[in-house]
């Protein structure tokens, strides 16, 4: 009984890891499929679908567009989120609770509704569907996250250090650029990369707000509609690898900043 109690957690952990990684591993395996059938049985390994993916203009264009929208919208979301977090954390207002509610509200509304609302509004205002429109939508969905992440890091400890800088004669902009921003650097980077990762992979808003220039998830969606293929598996694996690289960068930066702070 005792032994069971000791083994059970590890067995559960192993089982959950299997569940969590199963679809990803199967996907990666079948990106190296040899034949035409995208589904089991496996008859690879072969690199031919990877070659096809990298030579497919639609996919590489989608990839570039996705990266542009992801990095651009993440930059805007992080900047707006930082400014808001700083102002909200450093000055009490009568309407603080309401502002905070408003800034966080988009997180509770599904992407589909946000995308459709923007589609109707842009249509009415005569703004055409484009990568810019998608970017605007992605800032809306990522702003609550960047705001929350940065707001959580602007506590009393940081406020004290800022006060010390003021006492030593620093001006407003000096305190922000030379004290606050460097202190928040890991948080800023984490917010940026999380926003970029969520944006470059977002489908519904990108689908509703794009026409000619489309992002990678929309390309994948249209490939999916014309039937499963090993090319799709390879494209999915490519998306996975890029996302994991971004997560790896964030983890490394956070790990380094923790080490240098301790």
């Amino acid at each position: 009984m005792k032994a069971l109690g000791r083994i059970a957690p590890w067995a559960y952990l192993a089982l959950m890891l299997l569940f969590i990684f199963l679809p990803v591993l199967v996907l990666i395996q079948f990106s190296f499929q040899g034949g035409l059938a995208p589904v089991p049985p496996f008859d690879g390994p072969s690199l031919k679908w990877w070659a096809k993916v990298l030579a497919n203009r639609k996919i590489t264009d989608g990839l570039t567009n996705s990266l542009l929208v992801g990095l651009g919208s993440a930059l805007v979301a992080t900047m707006l989120g930082f400014l808001a977090a700083y102002a909200m954390a450093r000055q009490k207002r009568r309407l603080s609770a309401f502002y905070q509610f408003l800034l966080m509200a988009p997180i509770t509304v599904s992407y589909l509704i946000i995308g459709m609302g923007l589609q109707i509004t842009f249509n009415y205002l005569g703004i055409s569907k484009s990568l810019w429109a998608i970017g605007i939508g992605h800032v809306v969905i990522n702003l609550p996250l960047t705001f929350a992440i940065l707001y959580a890091q602007l506590g009393e400890h940081q406020a004290n250090i800022e006060r010390a800088a003021y006492d030593l004669g620093a001006r407003d902009w000096q305190v922000i650029l030379l004290v606050t921003v460097p202190m928040l650097w890991p948080g800023l980077l984490a917010a940026f990369f999380i926003a970029a990762t969520l944006s470059w992979d977002e489908f519904v808003i990108a689908f509703l707000l794009s026409r000619f220039d489309v992002t990678l998830p929309v390309v994948i969606w249209s490939m999916l509609k014309s039937g499963l293929s090993p090319e799709l598996n390879a494209t999915g694996t490519l998306v996975f690898v890029i996302s994991i690289l971004a997560v790896g960068v964030v983890e490394f930066l956070l790990w380094r900043s923790r080490r240098s702070n301790v």
């Binding site: 589904v39 990762t197 999915g236 996975f240």
Partner: peptide, 23 residues
């Protein structure tokens, strides 16, 4: 980790796992 994979792709991967010849 798979949380960060493409949402569309992740859903679709389950089709491979659940198919008649799937694992």
């Amino acid at each position: 980790l798979p949380f960060w994979t493409s949402y569309v792709v992740r859903s679709y991967s389950w089709l491979l796992v659940l198919s008649e010849n799937g694992i």
